[in-house]
Nucleic acid binder design. Structure first.
Lengths: 225, 225
DNA sequence: GATAAAACTGAAGATAAACTGAAGAAAAGT
DNA sequence: ACTTTTCTTCAGTTTATCTTCAGTTTTATC
């Protein structure tokens, strides 16, 4: 998953960053409101971890911004304040969970999973696209009831495609989602081509439909039409 | 097993904690409702031991919370009150057992096993996965009717895998479950590799099925598919 | 249809993850 | 206090995955 960490305490920020990265998430972090807004207006994340007390304003502004833009990011507030008011304020403004400092990183992770599950819980734990079934808990992918074995990048890619089915995904957006902003790819997409090729190959071994279309000059689209 | 103890009497709490820890469980404890909710929203436990009279509210709230979230934790209520109303209330709200203070720690332990057995195992205290049979009371493991001798960590690991069969278990989650939250492992999983290796070796000596799959970059999955 | 850019491919090299046996440290049992 | 078992750490090895590369095919445009 792609996660934005907005936290001004350097130590905590770095700890969260490395802990969640180890757990196979792509993380980015920043320490103030302005940078956060810039980042958010540039990319889509799966999760935003939001500290309330920031040097240039209240984190609540981010909440309002995201709500205003009807964005779908899940938001977990991280705050030193434990007053009922803050809590209610945060949850009312659209946060999905509220975590009081200090906390264990393991707890943060568990909450991320819990929130993600709650959000995706409209239908148990399966993401389905025609004959492709992704089980998020088992981390399995079945195509026509045949299990296919995907590597991390392939799995993350497929998940991203299916979550955004029907939409055109720019290669830059895809790279951004899978590698975060530490990767500079200056017009070299070889690694994307490579992973796409392998993903296609694995899917094509068990179905005849080529769902993963190339959009020349732009990127890809996962669709059955 | 991983157990959360919610009890405000310090002496009793510490007694339970150390008694159950000695019995090879990973325990955490807290003394009020707020902390309990925080912990519960952060981790998954196998068991919750719940006192009803807490400084900041009734333990029943925890029951409601867990039920609401459709959580699978087994719950044993510990209470000084022995009124039928309380008892019925507790069991109706989803508790699995009810224990009246004062009680012997040995009884608590027995009830934990009993409840766990009722939830997870068949009625002979056995947890079965194909040819693997775990006897929860005796803490023995039989594979194809041959007993294999597991150390504490190996046993706990296997139990955790079998309770979560089919699911992907991240190495971080495994570490958390086996060592609790005091362990910081910052990208050193050597001890996990070591225990996994030994567990595999012991299982492989008596069966040809390799149930314990590695999920590269993530963790493990116990499955027969 | 010629051209150039973009996309694809298989294979090789680089990297990171997982595994292993052995040894030292810690804990449990006597 | 001593012995035995279990847990953890370490260094070296194997394996899976990721990235790069050079050559090929496809696509849009002229």
């Amino acid at each position: 998953m792609k996660i934005l960490i907005i936290e001004d305490e350097q130590g905590l920020r770095e700890n969260i960053h490395s802990y969640l990265s180890e757990d196979n998430n792509v993380c980015e972090s920043c320490s103030d409101l302005a940078t956060a807004i810039t980042k958010l207006s540039g990319y889509h994340y799966d999760f935003v971890l939001l500290d309330i007390g920031l040097p240039d304003g209240e984190g609540f502004e981010i909440l309002r911004y995201l709500k205003n833009e009807m964005r779908s990011e899940a938001i977990i507030i991280i705050s030193a304040r434990n007053s009922l008011d803050d809590r209610i304020n945060g949850l009312n403004t659209g946060a999905d969970d509220y975590l009081v400092k200090p906390f264990h990183l393991a707890e943060l992770k568990a909450r991320i999973v819990a929130v993600f599950r709650r959000k995706a819980a409209n239908n148990n734990n399966n993401l389905i696209f025609n004959e492709i079934v992704i089980n998020l808990i088992e981390r399995t992918v079945h195509v026509n009831d045949v299990e296919i074995n995907l590597t991390r990048k392939e799995y993350d890619m497929l998940l991203y495609f299916i979550v955004n089915k029907g939409k055109v995904i720019a290669k830059t957006a895809l790279a951004e989602h899978l590698w975060g902003d530490e990767m500079d790819m200056h017009d070299n997409f070889d690694f994307i081509y490579s992973h796409i090729k392998n993903l296609r190959k694995k899917i094509m071994e068990v179905t005849t439909n080529d769902y993963l279309r190339s959009i020349y000059g732009i990127g890809y689209k996962f669709t059955d039409k």
